[in-house]
Design a protein around this nucleic acid. Sequence first.
DNA 1: AGTGTTTATCGTCAGGAAGACGACTATGAT
DNA 2: ATCATAGTCGTCTTCCTGACGATAAACACT
Lengths: 249, 249
Amino acid sequence: MSPYDPSAFPPFAVTVDLVVLTVRRHALCTLAVRRGEPPFQGRWALPGGFVRPDEDLAGAAARELVEETGLCVQDPGTPAPAPGTGAHLEQLATYGDPKRDPRMRVVSVAHLVLAPDLPAPRAGGDANSARWAPVETLLGPEGEASALAFDHAQILADGVERARSKIEYSSLATAFCPPEFTVGELRRVYEAVWAVALDPRNFHRKVTGTPGFLVPTGGTTTRQGGRPAQLFRAGGATLLNPPMLRPEV
Amino acid sequence: MSPYDPSAFPPFAVTVDLVVLTVRRHALCTLAVRRGEPPFQGRWALPGGFVRPDEDLAGAAARELVEETGLCVQDPGTPAPAPGTGAHLEQLATYGDPKRDPRMRVVSVAHLVLAPDLPAPRAGGDANSARWAPVETLLGPEGEASALAFDHAQILADGVERARSKIEYSSLATAFCPPEFTVGELRRVYEAVWAVALDPRNFHRKVTGTPGFLVPTGGTTTRQGGRPAQLFRAGGATLLNPPMLRPEV
DNA sequence: AGTGTTTATCGTCAGGAAGACGACTATGAT
DNA sequence: ATCATAGTCGTCTTCCTGACGATAAACACT
């Protein structure tokens, strides 16, 4: 058989699933929707849906994101024209185990979205309920009652690990922040994503000393209490060199 | 419409494509096959083929790899039982632009394979010709006559970039080496993949000083000429911390 | 007004890692 | 014997980080 015979191919369903991460109340949270139908009816799952015949994968992911959250995505691939605006979206990995969906053969292209803290999930489309859940809860002990549907626990774990490692060597952590933010707010993002405590003084030295990472806006804020802090925007740099080091243990 | 209605979904063809990288004569090379039929007849392309209804994505990639090269893959996920044996395989990314194949909607899950230098590509299966080509050649100037079919130039570029960055912080470079190798051979792998020159003394200090990276076998070899060099096997460590630094510029 | 608390920011110091590079060693080739 | 080639061990300087002291500027009390 020809490896590219277009007339005889096994048909697959292709979906996109979304790992939408944000930082809420010092914890890394993800968007979960409750399934309204079998299989896994009533269980939590990652948002997602079928790819349409005429859209590409990133487009399908962006569409699902708007439908579920109202969030707009910075043009993928293009360096953000207005850093801090909108969310970051990237492809995560593809999951295609023959048995991952009991009904049929579904290949799901998972995407990772990093978003600033949002007011509240609007249950758009057909999702009759949606919520931000701490990833600790969803990935907690094995066999948890709150376990995610399908292989979504694995997808979420992969997405979280991707985010954890990517903020080491890129400026992506700013995607969790509003357009203007303080060094302390950025530090709390790192602390939430890595679930560690960082030294405020060394962190400040590191981020302000990395060229192109942060651009001072001139303003200050006191919204965190304490001494007023300088406000920054994300700079043009996307890669951190040397990287931010994740503490051991 | 329900996002998971199994009865009405747009059918896609799902394929795997392989970026098989190796180091030959101090150059990073990839496996290319010549297409025997339209579209892109006579052009070079990455090896690949349809995913079968009952196999998972990594399994399809491993099967295609055996068909094309005879190469066996270490059980993916499992830490290599015999490091240096077989090839490393991992998922790279998924390409699903609606127009990427002019005939039909094809979503391709690209995989990356790192292999030691192999004798010669055996044109297995139906590939009437296959060769190792330096990635420089295939990715050279835009609009080259030798350009790859479909979006395979993009896939290859992504695979090369993945390999280049992954040998920074992992011990994956040993996947390009035979089971036993010298520090100099490993250094030449880094030099070929990164296309840079590295200081032999600092490189030696770095790799021998990283716990778990290299295990001396006791033997020595002189196959490179010059003073006999110690032979090593890949150690159990998979992550390099701190990473190997890629020289700037 | 004064005191404590919180957060931000600057500075100092010691230790580790890396780049540059000198020196020596052990082979084969001429 | 001499040279060329590769491998291996050291040294020195520089940069970065982690640990942590000290000061600054706001707010909440009393």
